[in-house]
Design a protein around this nucleic acid. Structure first.
Length: 288
DNA sequence: ACAGGCTCCTGCAGGC
DNA sequence: TGCCTGCAGGAGCCTG
């Protein structure tokens, strides 16, 4: 299931391949879901627009779109030409099983393809999502404000702000980590892995954690996310990047989906419980 | 306001 | 071998 590192990997890959390309034609499946904006409206808004950039916010992939003829800023260049102002955004949430792929038009259509954007370069940007938990949204920035995740970014949040998120919260820290209104981008895998790094049991009440524990959690979370991004994300279920390539972080999971396996640190068998309706994995000895 | 539970959806694993 | 059941989970919605 795509979380922050997987979404980051996909957004980077898609950005590399489609930045500056023009959306010639947009096609959407006739399923009721997964559209936050009506498909006809999305198609109308997308066709003829230039993709200025693609980036990640929380678990969302945001495509910044400009008017035909707008020149995107070159990636990673120092020379700062005037940044073209986006006119619109196409926002993709992958849900559990969503994929955003850049393909050639002759590439066979995967089952459950819900959107195909034909690009002027001849390539196609495709959204595939068997379980339809993903969401597609179009925002006209002339009418609406730009997309912003409601929660804080775990990669940049400072200690004081992080601690304040959990103050007075009477719920399990695991459940709090999954709440996108507090932190944007953390899902089940990295919640479990960061709690292991911090040595904190998932059922501990969020508001009762000490300053020291919260700081271990903040740094553990950041480390585990950064490490996973370097490895291209975790491939559990059917996650693949923009090229359809799997990531490697799943080989380094310490607790996630390792129930009954020995802890990598102390060899105690990893336990699995259910917290907030989610499978939750922890080491009963290393996590207190 | 906040917390917890239910719902959506399909693929896959496990049991008989 | 093949069918059936149950489970996985992000986030929006409803309820207490």
């Amino acid at each position: 299931m795509p979380e922050l590192p997987e979404v980051e990997t996909i957004a980077r890959g898609v950005d590399q391949r489609v930045r500056g390309d023009v959306i010639a034609q947009a096609w959407f499946s006739s399923h009721r879901e997964p559209f936050k904006t009506r498909p006809e409206q999305q198609a109308r808004g997308l066709e003829g627009r230039v993709i200025l950039s693609v980036h990640r916010t929380g678990k969302h992939i945001v495509c910044e779109l400009g008017a035909l003829g707008a020149k995107p800023a070159a990636r990673g260049k120092q020379e700062k030409g005037p940044e073209p102002t986006p006119e619109a955004q196409w926002i993709v949430h992958l849900g559990m099983t969503g994929r955003l792929l850049v393909t050639t038009p002759d590439g066979s259509m995967a089952p459950h393809t819900h959107a195909r954007l034909s690009l002027a370069s001849g390539r196609e940007l495709r959204f595939v999502d068997p379980r339809r938990f993903g969401r597609l949204e179009f925002r006209d920035l002339g009418r609406k404000s730009g997309f912003a995740a409601s929660g804080a970014e775990p990669l940049v949040i400072e200690a004081a702000e992080f601690a304040a998120l959990f103050r007075g919260r009477r719920l399990a820290i695991k459940a709090a980590l999954l709440n996108q209104n507090l932190l944007a981008g953390v899902g089940n895998i990295y919640a479990d892995e960061s709690l292991f790094r911090a040595g904190i049991r998932p059922l501990r009440m969020a508001g009762r954690l000490t300053r020291l524990e919260l700081e271990r959690l903040r740094t553990g979370l950041r480390e585990v996310l950064e490490h996973a991004i370097r490895l291209g994300g975790s491939s559990v279920s059917d996650y693949v990047d923009a090229d359809g390539v799997k990531g490697f972080f799943q080989l380094e999971h310490c607790v996630y989906q390792r129930a009954e396996h020995p802890c990598r640190r102390c060899e105690t068998p990893i336990r699995r419980i259910v917290v907030a309706g989610r499978g939750t994995h922890f080491c009963p000895k290393c996590q207190r």
